[in-house]
C-alpha cells in the first residue's frame, strides 16, 4: 500500500467504518445509559428562579467562585484546549468542507494562520494539562490507563493535523492520512471511554440541575 492508497483508504472505507462505529456506539451507549430511568420525586418541589436542569447545563460552563484560584491549571488549561479543539474542528476550512459534504451545513472558516496559531496553543495547553496530571497528586491518584490513552488519542489528531499542514516530518499525503486515521481512532473509542463525556455531560448537568432545582437550589 503506497501513501496515496493509504490516504484513499482512510478517507474512504476507513472513515466509513469509523463513523459507523461512532454512530453505533453513541446510540448504543446513550440508550444504555438513559434507559435506566429515574424515579419521580414525589416530595412537593420548591420553585425558585434559576433552579432547573437547563440552567445548570449552561451555568456549569462557568467556573464556581474561587475555584479558578484553587485549580488554575485545570481550569485554564481545560478551557484553552476545549475551545481550541472546537475552533480547529469547526472553523478550519477543510473541516467545514467535510462537514458540509456530510451534512449539507456550512459556515465561514478562519484563515489558516489563525488555525495554525490555535493549534499550537491547543497542543501547548494539552501538554500542560498532561504535565498537571502527572504532577498533581489527586489527578495522578485518579488516573488509570484510560486517562493516558484518551489523552493520547485526543492529542494525536491535533498534532498530526498541524504537522500535515506545516509539512513536517513526513510527506503531506502520509501525514494527512495519519491525521485522518488518528481522528478515526478517536471516533471509534469515543463512545466507549471517558471521552463519551462529550455527550453525557449535558445529561449529567441536566440531572444535577433538576434534582437540586426540585429543592430550590440553583447549582
Amino acid at each position: 500500500m503506497n501513501e496515496m492508497q493509504f490516504l484513499t483508504w482512510v478517507r474512504g472505507p476507513g472513515l466509513d467504518i469509523a463513523i459507523g462505529i461512532f454512530l453505533l456506539g453513541v446510540l448504543w451507549r446513550l440508550i444504555e445509559i438513559y434507559s435506566l430511568g429515574r424515579k419521580v420525586d414525589v416530595a412537593p418541589g420548591r420553585h425558585r428562579d434559576g433552579a432547573s436542569g437547563l440552567h445548570t447545563v449552561f451555568r456549569r460552563s462557568v467556573p464556581p467562585p474561587g475555584m479558578i484560584k484553587r485549580s488554575p491549571v485545570t481550569y485554564i488549561g481545560g478551557y484553552v484546549f476545549h475551545i481550541g479543539l472546537a475552533i480547529i474542528v469547526f472553523l478550519f476550512e477543510p473541516h467545514i468542507i467535510l462537514i458540509r459534504d456530510l451534512t449539507g451545513l456550512s459556515w465561514p472558516g478562519l484563515p489558516s494562520q489563525v488555525i495554525d496559531l490555535v493549534s499550537v496553543i491547543t497542543l501547548g495547553a494539552m501538554l500542560v494539562v498532561l504535565a498537571d496530571r502527572i504532577k498533581n497528586p489527586v489527578k495522578r491518584y485518579l488516573s488509570t490507563f484510560a486517562d493516558w490513552f484518551t489523552w493520547t488519542l485526543t492529542f494525536l489528531p491535533v498534532l498530526t493535523g498541524w504537522m500535515a499542514v506545516q509539512h513536517l516530518l513526513l510527506p503531506y499525503t502520509t501525514m494527512l492520512a495519519l491525521h485522518i486515521l488518528s481522528v478515526e481512532l478517536l471516533l471509534i473509542v469515543l463512545p466507549f471511554t471517558k471521552l463519551f463525556h462529550a455527550f453525557t455531560v449535558f445529561g449529567s448537568r441536566w440531572y444535577l440541575g433538576k434534582i437540586n432545582g426540585h429543592r430550590g437550589v440553583p447549582v
Partner: peptide
C-alpha cells in the same frame, strides 16, 4: 470534484450503524 478532506460514501454506512447501535441499545435496555 471531491475535496481531499471529503470521505467516500458514509451515509449508507452511517444509517446502518445507527440502526445497529439503536438495536443494541434497546436490547441492553
Amino acid at each position: 470534484y471531491r475535496a481531499l478532506s471529503r470521505p467516500a460514501d458514509p451515509l449508507k454506512m452511517a444509517a446502518t450503524a445507527a440502526a445497529v447501535g439503536a438495536a443494541a441499545g434497546v436490547a441492553i435496555t
